[in-house]
């Protein structure tokens, strides 16, 4: 019998708490596969956020730290500058990275910290029960925008990859999705590249991954297949996937 696939060694064999149809589980696996394939598990230190992925420190089979909401890039900076030969990644959601932690992500990027940032954008606050996120789409319903997000009251969604790619410290910024197989493959390659850039000491890399939240996207979308459609029909129009910056070859 031939073994075709197995759980990555960089992922612990315990049950995750994520909801059915959530993208976090897929993204965790992709990060772990990238670590395995690059053979960096023994020197990788991960930073878990506050938000749905708060328990990420229980899932990855490498040294992990969990810190205050939004401060992942600052914590990662402290680790990386203390142990420069390590590989440090910060795993963050949209509230964590693009709202409360906007200062930390922008300045870590501006300093050109040699870090890998995995940014999971599902356009909603998941853990706290579906409030508006900085990336919530115009018209999207949440528990704090019950009639849908209105620009005149709630402002506009923030495009992080576009913004960060203007900073000289950023080497690589790509947006991908995990709502279909092609997206998953692209996400995996992007994550691997973001790690590779750090291994080669090139600078700051961020992969923004559009991800499903069937639980908090409202009843109409409360099933995984409807949720994937919301990404392909709506999210990609506001957050177009693609490579926003790549100067890693220079």
């Amino acid at each position: 019998m031939q073994l075709l696939n197995e759980k990555p060694k960089s992922l612990l064999d315990i049950q995750m708490h994520y909801c059915p149809g959530c993208g976090h589980g897929i993204i965790h696996r992709l990060v772990a596969e990238a670590m395995d394939e690059l053979n960096i598990r023994e020197k990788t230190i991960g930073v878990a956020p506050v938000g749905c992925a708060v328990f990420a420190d229980h899932y990855f089979n490498c040294d992990m730290i969990q810190g205050p909401h939004g401060r992942g890039p600052a914590i990662a900076t402290g680790i990386k500058r203390s142990v420069p030969e390590s590989v440090v990644f910060s795993y963050q959601g949209d509230g964590d990275l693009a709202s409360i932690g906007m200062g930390e992500i922008v300045h870590a990027a501006a300093r050109g910290e040699k870090l890998t940032v995995i940014f999971v954008n599902n356009a909603i606050y998941g853990m706290t029960g579906g409030q508006m996120a900085p990336t919530t789409l115009i018209g999207q319903k949440s528990t704090t925008t019950v009639d849908g997000r209105k620009p005149e009251i709630n402002g506009f969604p923030i495009r992080m990859c576009e913004m960060l790619s203007t900073l000289d410290g950023v080497v690589y910024a790509e947006r991908t999705t995990v709502h279909n197989v092609a997206g998953v493959v692209k996400s995996k390659n992007a994550i691997k590249k973001a790690f590779q850039n750090q291994i080669e000491n090139k600078g700051f890399s961020i992969v923004e991954i559009l991800s499903m939240c069937p639980t908090n996207w409202g009843t109409r979308l409360d099933n995984p297949s409807e949720a994937t459609k919301y990404i392909s029909d709506s999210m990609v129009k506001v957050f177009p996937p693609g490579v926003y910056k790549d100067i890693s070859a220079k």
Binding site: V47, I65, G67, P68, R71, A74, I75, A76, T77, G78, I79, K80, R81, S82, G103, E104, H107
Partner: peptide
């Protein structure tokens, strides 16, 4: 805020 969290990591 960032300073203390950099220290948290270090």
């Amino acid at each position: 805020v960032a300073a203390i969290n950099v220290i948290y990591g270090a």
